[in-house]
Design a protein around this nucleic acid. Structure first.
Length: 373
RNA sequence: GCCUCGUUAGCUCAAUGGUGGAGCACUCGGCUGUUAACCGAUAGGUUGUAGGUUCGAGCCCUACACGAGGCG
């Protein structure tokens, strides 16, 4: 394992829990803290691999459940794995499908053995188990694969939360017993809903399985921000030191800053690409909703401080026009920008941490972006 | 010249003689391990004009205007 994967902590900020590091994988190194663009169906929607290299994506995600349904993980294996299939030659991570079970909540049935749910395309009944998820992830061949977990809603009882957590641990054990491929690192996922004791218990038990990284799941599912931050505060002193901590499904700039401050190293989020397709951009001066009529005759760049293709070649008026006409280029340019903006932000965060000025940088960023602390 | 059909929100169209609606567009909001180029909200009307019948007319009657088609 260690031949293929290892993590080095490079620097710990003197005034916070923020830290920089580097994760070595078979497809290259990943400098943390990092944001990972999401490419569910083996495509970061509207972008080519070269686009992703150009904006500096170090690693991207793909999804077990979605690729299993279409085109099928066996086919991806025949293609030579997900890297070759989509021609992306940097590190990749596959999510296990646990979140899909959660987000397709109205049509699922969870038992100790696994989950029965309906294929959202054909309606056919499917049965997923930890072993099946690992089989699929092995076929897909990403560098980092995720354990099959049970994500639970905000607001459920302690008893139900404990059941989901215990089941996640049981499934984690099964995932590890089933996973044999040393070229793929399996990340376990901490659950425990929003109960401090369950989060801590889940973390302690999950740590026993950590070989090169640990993920925090089940957060940012509709709970208030302070509730989520409280969970991070509770867990912060107990993470394994020399492994990257991956916070799943987060986020927006403010959530990233708050999480980095609390010792998180990796993030993934569909937000950047989804809002891009819906006509919104993240910029150094805050969000820009390009549908708004105020941009009709605004011939200035989207973000004068951004070095991406979109900001160096086009105006807000043109982007407004593309968005209003529902032209696909608008979605593409804004996706390109939002990812570049976030990756630049992560680079600046790493630089700040290395200079022990994470908190100052956070303050500067918040003031300019318009985030209230 | 005659006949037929039509005229309702910016556009395309609904609406037994009984509180005039929808889709799209416009304006604005939302989006956090993608069922999402998606979802939601506000606004928008002297029902072509002028009369008549009726307790009550977008709807029935008359005239006119405008449009489409047909016949001469």
């Amino acid at each position: 394992m260690k031949k293929n994967f290892s993590y080095e902590v490079l620097h710990i900020d003197k005034n916070s829990g923020a830290r920089t590091g580097v994760l070595h994988t078979p497809h290259g190194d990943i400098y943390t803290p990092i944001y990972m663009p999401v490419g569910t169906l083996a495509t970061v929607k509207s972008l080519t691999s070269d686009d992703l290299y150009d904006v500096g994506a170090q690693i991207i995600l793909a999804n077990t459940y979605h690729l299993h349904i279409r085109p099928g993980d066996e086919l991806v294996k025949k293609a030579g794995g997900v890297h070759k299939f989509m021609n992306f030659n940097r590190p990749m991570l596959t999510d296990s499908g646990g979140f899909q079970v959660f987000s397709l909540a109205d049509i699922r049935k969870i038992t100790d053995d696994g989950v029965e749910f309906r294929n959202h395309l054909s309606g056919a009944k499917m049965f997923f188990t930890p072993e099946k998820a690992i089989d699929i992830e092995n076929n897909l061949g990403a560098d980092i694969i995720m354990a099959f977990d049970v994500c639970s809603d905000y607001g459920i009882s302690h008893k139900d939360a404990e059941k989901a957590m215990t089941r996640t641990l049981d499934w984690l054990d099964r995932c590890y017993k089933h996973h044999k491929n040393a070229k793929q690192m399996l990340f376990p996922i901490v659950q425990g809903n929003f109960y401090e004791d369950l989060r801590l218990k889940s973390l302690e038990e999950t740590k026993k399985y950590c070989k090169c990284g640990i993920a925090i799941g089940g957060l940012s599912v509709g709970e208030p921000k302070d509730v989520m931050l409280k969970m991070l505060d509770v867990m912060q002193p107990h993470y394994p030191e020399k492994m990257p901590r991956y916070m799943m499904g987060v986020g927006t700039p403010d959530y990233i800053f708050e999480s980095v401050q609390r010792g998180i190293d990796m993030f993934d989020c569909v937000f950047q690409t989804r809002v891009a397709r819906n006509g919104m951009a993240l910029t150094s001066r805050g969000k820009v909703v390009l549908k708004q009529a105020q941009y009709k005759e605004d011939f200035s760049p989207l973000d004068p401080e951004c070095d991406c293709y979109c900001c160096t070649h086009h105006t807000k008026a043109y982007l407004h026009h593309l968005v209003m006409c529902n032209e696909i280029l608008g979605a593409r340019l804004l996706s390109l920008h939002n990812i570049r903006f976030t990756l630049n932000m992560m680079q600046n965060i790493r630089d700040a941490i290395n200079n022990d000025r994470f908190l100052e940088f956070k303050k500067e960023f918040y003031a300019k972006y318009g985030i209230k602390e």
